[in-house]
Structures are given as C-alpha cells and as structure tokens.
Design a protein around this nucleic acid. Structure first.
Lengths: 224, 224, 224, 224
DNA sequence: TCTTAATCGAGACGGTACGTCGGGTCTTCTG
DNA sequence: CAGAAGACCCGACGTACCGTCTCGATTAAGA
C-alpha cells in the first residue's frame, strides 16, 4: 500500500523528496474525491489542494488511478473483526462494518472508479488486489479459524490449495454481495439484510427462503 | 430499456427523430467499446461510426454514461436460464453464462464504468437499475419457481414483500459473487468454482468448507 | 432596397408568399442587429423575432449578408440634401447628416459587416453597390448641379465619362472621409470638423492648413 | 503594435512564453488569410499551420480579431513616403502605394473584417487605432513637413491642437478616399485617379471639376 | 565552504475531447 | 403548395485536463 512508485536507492544525491508532500497529496486526493467525485477529479485540483506542483504528483504516481488506489487503501485497512461469540454474529458484523465503509463517499467512489479503470489495465488490477482487496482476506481467515476453534466449521482440509479456494470463495461471496447490494442495487445494508444474508451463507438457500425471523433464530443455535 | 430520454407526446410537430439513427448509434457504441474501451471512447468516434452528427447524440443522451447504459443493456437481456433439471444445475448454468457475458470486453468495461459514474449520480443509478440490473431478476424468479415446482425449495411465504426480499438477496449474492470473482479478484469463473459456489449457495458454509467434490455430490441427491 | 432574390413569375401556383413575412423579417433583422451586432447575429434569432421559420428566410435570401443588405438599404435612402443656399453649406449638411446615419448602430454595424463580407464575394459587392452605395450618388449629382446653377462650379465638361469620373471622385472623397473619421478614427463628425472638411474640399490643402475659423469664413466667398 | 495582451512583470515565474511561437502564429495567420480569407479563417487552422496548440493562441489573444490586427499591423508599417520632389507627387505616390497594399488579399480582407468587428467592440477599436491606423499618420506628418520646407504649405499654426486637427483631417480624407474607392466602389486606384484626387486635394473642388489633364498639369507647378 | 544534483513552485507547451452553437438542408404535419 | 416546427449533418467554437517541458529557486549531501 504505502510506498509510491519506486522505493529507490536508499540514499540518492540531491534534494530528497518531501514526505510532507506525500501526506498532503494523499489527504488532498481523499478530500477532493469526496467533493467532486472521480470523473471531475483532476490532477491540477489535487495539486492545488495539496499546495504542490503538478510535477510533484507525476514524479511519484504515473496515473490518477494509482494515486487514488494509494489514497484510499489505508481506509480499507481500518476494517476489523471483533469476536462476537459465534460465526453468525461475526458474519453479520463484518457485513455491517464493510457496508458502513462503502457508504463513505470517498471509498465507494474511489473503489468503483479504480475497478473500472482496472478492467483495461492489468498492472492496476494487480495493484488494487495488493493494496486493497487481498489485504481484507485476513477478515475471512480470522473469522474462519475462530469458527473452527468454536467447532462451528470443520477443520481445514489436508490440501492447502483447497483451503485457499474456499477462503477465496467465501470472500468473493461476502464482499461481492455487500458491494452489489450497496452500490448496484442501491439498497441499504441494514441488520435485517445482514441477518438474512448470514442465514443464506450459513445454511443455504432453503433456510433463507423460508420466512425469515422466527425460524432462522430458532435454527441459529442448533445449526452447529 | 429501449427509449432514450423523453418518450413524449405520441405525435409531435416537426421532423420526427430517426429511429435508424438510434439503432446505428447504439451499435456503433458497442463496436467502439470493444475496440477502444471505455476510457478512449469518445462521442465524436461514436458519431463518426454511426454516420451521425454529434448533435444527434447529445439530443438523445445527456451523457456518455447514459448512452453506454442503453447500448449494453440489450446484451444483458440475452442471458437465459434453460432448464437443466435441478436447482444446482440451474445455478451453475447461470453463473457460467453470466461470467461469459462479463468476459466480453464491451460488457465488463462498460458495466464497471457506468457503475463508477453512478456512485455520484443518482439518476444514472436509477437508469442502470431499470435498464440492466433489475431486468435480470427474472432469472432468479424463473429458477426459483422451477425449483419450487420440483419441490427443491419451499413455496413462497404468505407476505409478498418477504418473497421480494428473498429474491433480491439471492440476486445480490449470485451477481455480486460472480462480478467480484471475475472483475475484482480477477480469477476465472470455471466449472469448478461454479460447483463450489452452488454448494455454498444451496447448503451453506459448512458444506462448502469441506473438501469439495465427493461430499457435495453425495449431498446433492438428498436435497430432494 | 426593394425586392428580395428572384422577382419571379408574376403569378405562380400554390400558396403565395406572405408579404407580411418579408416586412417582419427585415424589421427583425434591423432590430437584432442593433442589439447583438453582426457577429452574434444569427438566422435562427432573426426567424424567432420575426415569428417565422428558418426555411422561410432561406427561401428568400441565400445568405445572411444579402438579407442584411436589403434590411439596411432602406435606411440609407432616407438621406436628403436640402438646399442650404451655397455649396459649402450643402457639403457641411450632407456630411453631418451622413455622419448621423452612421452613428445609428444598425447602419454602422451592418454597413461595415457587409463590406467586410464583400471583399471575398463579388456578387455581394455588386449588390451592395446597387442597393446602397450608388443610390447615394444622387446627393452628389444634386449638390453639383445646384452649385453649377449658382455659378459656384464650372459646367459639365463635354465628355460625359469625364463628368462621371468627377462625380465618382467627389463621392468617394466625401463618403470615404466621413466613414473613416466616424468608424476608423472613431472621432465625432461635428460642425467644426464638417467646416474644416468643407474648406479642404472647396479650396484645397493650403486653405485648410491655415488656422480655421476666421480666415476660412472670410475666404469662403472669394475662394482666394 | 507588437506585444500581445499583457506586457507583465519583466521576469515572471514559471516557463516563459515562447517568442518563436508568437512569430509563427502571426506568420501563419497572414498565410491563412491569403489562402482562405477571413470568413473561413479558423483558430484551429492557424494553430495547425503555426505548429502550435490552440491553447497557445487563446493564451495570448482573446479573440480572432485581435490576433488578426496584430498579424496585419506589420504590413501597414511597410508603407513609405519617398521624397518625389513636390507635394503633388508625394500625394500621388502615397495614394498609389496605399492602394497597392489594399489590393493584397490579406490586408483588405483583414482590415475590413476587424473594422466590422470593431463597430461593436470598443477595445478592439482602440487596438486597431494603436496598431494600424494611427501609426500611418507619420506619412502625413512627413509629407506635410517636407511640403512646408519646400514652401508648398504654410507653416504650422501656433496652436499645436490645431495642427493635430489638420493632420487628422488630411489623414481621414486620403485614407478614407482610397479605401472607399478600392473596397466600396470597387474601382481601380490608378495613376489617373490618383492625379485627379491630388488635384482635388491640393486645389479644391473647382479645379478638380474642370477637365482634368492639361489644366492640372499647368496648375501643378505654379500653385505654390 | 563550495559544488553538485535532484527537488520544489510555477506555469507555458502540444494535444485531445469536450459540449455548444450556428449554418444550411431535410422531412414531417398543418393551414 | 407555403409555412412552422424541428431534426438532420457539418464544422468551428472556446474550455478543460492531460502529461511534458522549461524556468528560477531550494535544499541537502558530497567534495
């Protein structure tokens, strides 16, 4: 995430780059994103807000999208997964807090924008995965191992590749569902939806298809 | 989907708008999207390809994003859900064909681009939902009613709002997972992944977490 | 001046052209010229003001410049040369009234605009001469024949071509000087200037170069 | 004449403006004027010919008309007044050479066009006077002082304002007559016309009205 | 202490696309 | 048939950003 383009020879000659400028630029990028959105976000505007020349931006980032990736990556790292006692509660918790993050204008705008750019830019795709996406798989790993310790989930299969496949699947399902609900369907991710989604995730389509509250709350304890 | 901006008084004065131009513009938009992608897609280029003046574009669509929504909406309507005999097969089928659609450059690039724009544009958000997203819920409705007829899923709950909630949930989960896997995680949606995802969807996390093939294939028959 | 483009077959079939439209268009053209000037004068605006469709304009005039020529030509015909008793007074009178005409925004703007257009348009040049310029030579002819009757000027030379050359020369000098003073030098054509100009015209450079008022008023009768 | 818009602080920050670009733009403007005339003269075309971006044009000149004023101003500076021995010959000479200048397509087309624009633009009017018109008064001043040294004209009156009025008058008469003859009446300014005009200017209407050649040639030496 | 070299700010540069405007033509329905 | 309405193609407009470049002015580290 952190370091911009090349973390170069540990000490070059000449005037060193200003670290204050780096911070100012990233903060200015976030602020500008909130106010004007991606499509009206310009390098000149960022430079102006950061009190920095355009040259300084381009010396550090090759493109607007890379700058934005770095600027918002740190926000995603704020996600946490406190232990709520059972797998269902942990799922609901992460869904709610991820949705809250996606409600912030700078995150939702930046995320979709860089993803859009990434559809035609392999390097950017990799950078996004490194700086944003893959870092959040820690949440799945944490929740899963906790649930295994509680006996809510079976232990890892012998093949580690198989484990990775499962983790990836769960991550895509949770993140995808929340993003789609929030940004595509444009509907609120509230506690009701989180509960229903957790039921689907834990028990499958049949359980989620029956009337929601009473059964699922009964079903919850005895599922595991 | 079809009609652009105002579907006005059924017979206005003056020269009527050319329907041929409409068709040519949408086709040219798709063709240009394939060749140059979203970021290099220009209104002038579209007009040139369509054999149409730029003014004609702006008379019908207020922005490039709205034009692209209409241009690609029709592609999503090509999705079908042939009856494969059981719910699991239907799920796997729709996942595979949706992923195939998302591999086409004009769809993936256009979809993400307009979604990105839509994060700061309420009207565009509504247009996307109307023209693209909500129309595909038919796939969920079809598959669900088929599964109910087969006895694979319980009948609709008495409250129709509850049914709508469930349908929306399923749609967000399937569409979100496929989009996330394809465009964010940048991994292939192949038969293996589809099978694993279907297991998760039908039986929940516990089933999906155990080693994939044998158990799930055993589990499949006894679902119904 | 009078008729627009083709003074056609005295009675054609079908609906005859509206003469009211003609008048409305020319009036609208003059009004629009005053308000927005030539460069911002548009055919659409004229049509709108005249309550007429653009088609109707183009059916009658081939270009904006021709329309403007016709619209302002009538204004120049208002110039008159009342008999003020002597050649000097007649010259001063015509200078003053011509300058007054050139102060009106629609005349000065229109005249210079169509002249500018005419530098690259032979047909327009002819139309301007016919409709505006040559018609005003009557002023020179009148003043000259009056002065000849008074004995202030010698009679016409035997060769009529020679007479025409002299009339053209006088016309170019008077009209040119007033236009240049008004529109190029952008200085007022007041009584002082008119008197000085008349002295130059009647008596030549030497007389005009000496101090102005007293001498020239003495000099006037005896010419030296 | 020379400098474009703001002649600012003698050393500003940032990259200085390219003087080569200035020269290239003005030359390109003249060349384009010759080829396509004023009405088809576009900023893009000028920029293209000059090898310069459109932005560079707009950074220096607010409007096409101002650019053209600067571009053609230098051509008018080429006018000279060689000493031909007597006032009459000097007048005829300047008339002929001014008419030759007005026959060049770039000058006549540009001059009339910017004058037309200037009727509704006070600033442009001032710019034209500064850059083109007033600079040519030097010709009148030169010719007049030469004639005074020769004894062909009386010395300056005591009041300098009176001198200025006379110079302005003579300038308006000569320039106005030549422009009107050339561009409005659309007739050639040849030696015959020049001689006739000089007679009018030097001796007044009466002399010019009599049959031209013999008398005026006799009159020429003994007039002063 | 003096180079030396890379940074900084500012802003002009060549480009590309924008969205608008006006020109003139055409196609429709209404009088 | 003329007229109004207005859509059509065309091309220029002036603006906004892009990413690069040239300036003079800083700012360290190495000589």
């Amino acid at each position: 995430m952190a370091a911009p383009d090349p973390p170069p020879a540990p000490q070059r000659r000449g005037r060193p780059r200003s670290v204050a400028a780096d911070r100012a630029i990233l903060a200015a990028t976030r602020a500008a994103l909130v106010e004007v959105g991606w499509s009206r976000l310009t390098m000149s505007e960022i430079a102006l807000r950061a009190g920095v020349a355009k040259t300084t931006l381009y010396r550090r980032w090759a493109a607007k999208s890379e700058l934005v990736v770095d600027a918002v990556a740190v926000l995603f790292d704020e996600l946490e997964l406190p232990d709520r006692g059972c797998l269902r509660a942990d799922v609901e918790g992460v869904v709610i807090s991820f949705a809250a993050l996606l409600r912030r204008p700078e995150t939702k705008t930046a995320l979709m924008a860089v993803l859009a750019e990434s559809t035609t830019d392999r390097a950017l795709r990799a950078r996004i995965r490194e700086a944003i996406v893959d870092r959040q798989k820690r949440l799945v790993l944490d929740g899963r191992s906790r649930a295994q310790q509680r006996g809510e989930l079976p232990p890892d299969p012998p093949d580690p590749a198989e484990t990775a496949r499962v983790v990836d699947l769960i991550f895509d399902v949770i993140a995808g569902a929340v993003v789609h609900r929030s940004l595509v369907s444009d509907c609120p991710v509230d506690e009701t939806w989180a509960r229903q989604f957790a039921t689907l995730l834990l028990e499958g389509l049949g359980a989620a298809s029956t009337s929601a509250r009473p059964q699922s709350e009964q079903a919850q304890p005895d599922t595991f």
